[in-house]
Lab assay of single mutants.
Amino acid sequence: DETGKFLVLALYDYQEKSPREVTMKKGDILTLLNSTNKDWWKVEVNGRQGFVPAAYVKFL
């Protein structure tokens, strides 16, 4: 149950560059965990948590 969690859509592919980031593919649906930083949002994708560039995702 994803109640209270926001979902975001990956607009572009992103390859993680550090262990704190996660890789996503364009079209992936991600669970948004934290968006307090304007540049990097914490998400969960494929069972992994990490950061992606905020400009690469949008709210569903």
Rank of each mutant, 00 (worst) to 15 (best):
D1K: 02
A55C: 09
G27W: 05
Y14H: 05
E2L: 14
L30V: 08
Y14M: 01
E2W: 04
D39Y: 14
V45S: 12
G27E: 02
K5H: 15
L33S: 02
K42M: 12
L30K: 00
K5P: 14
N37Y: 09
M24N: 00
A10W: 02
K58Q: 15
K17V: 09
Y14Q: 00
N46G: 14
T31M: 13
D1A: 15
Y12L: 09
K17E: 09
E44T: 07
E21L: 05
P53C: 03
W41P: 03
T31A: 09
R48W: 03
F59N: 09
K17C: 08
P53T: 01
N34M: 07
N37Q: 10
I29M: 07
L9I: 15
T36L: 10
R20F: 14
Q49Y: 08
G50E: 01
L33A: 02
I29Y: 07
K42C: 10
F59H: 13
Y12H: 12
L33N: 02
F6L: 13
G4L: 11
E21K: 04
G50V: 04
V57G: 01
W40R: 03
Q15L: 13
W40S: 03
Y56F: 13
K5W: 11
A10R: 01
V22D: 00
F51A: 03
A55H: 11
A55R: 13
S35R: 12
K38S: 12
L60I: 13
G47Y: 05
Y12V: 12
G4Y: 08
D28R: 02
L9S: 06
Q49S: 15
D1V: 15
V45W: 08
V43E: 00
G47E: 07
D39Q: 11
D13W: 02
S18K: 07
T36D: 15
D39K: 12
K26M: 08
Y14V: 01
E2T: 15
R48L: 08
K38V: 11
A54N: 03
K42W: 15
M24K: 00
N34R: 06
T36I: 10
G27C: 05
G4R: 10
T3A: 13
Y12P: 00
V52H: 00
V45E: 03
Q49M: 11
P53N: 02
L30E: 00
T3F: 12
V43Y: 00
E21A: 05
E16C: 09
R20K: 14
V52R: 00
D1C: 10
T31E: 10
D39M: 09
F59G: 07
E2S: 13
V52M: 02
G4D: 13
N34Q: 09
K5I: 13
E16P: 14
W40E: 04
D13M: 03
L32E: 00
Q15N: 12
V8G: 09
Q49E: 15
N46D: 10
T31Y: 11
D13Y: 04
F51R: 03
K58H: 12
K17Y: 04
K42Q: 11
T23C: 05
D1Y: 07
V22G: 02
L7Q: 10
V52G: 00
A54Q: 05
N34W: 07
F59R: 13
G50P: 00
E16Q: 14
Y56A: 14
N34P: 03
V22N: 04
V57E: 00
F6I: 11
Y12D: 08
E16H: 08
V45P: 00
G4N: 13
I29P: 02
N46H: 09
E16F: 05
F59S: 09
L32T: 02
M24A: 02
N34V: 07
R20H: 15
R48T: 08
Y12E: 11
M24Q: 02
K25C: 08
N34E: 15
V43T: 01
V57L: 15
F6C: 11
M24I: 15
L33D: 01
G27A: 03
P19L: 09
F51Q: 04
S18H: 13
M24R: 00
K5G: 12
T36S: 14
N46P: 05
R20L: 13
K25G: 05
L7E: 07
I29L: 10
Q15G: 08
Q49N: 08
L9T: 12
L32Q: 00
V43Q: 00
A55T: 15
L33H: 06
D39W: 14
F6V: 15
D39C: 11
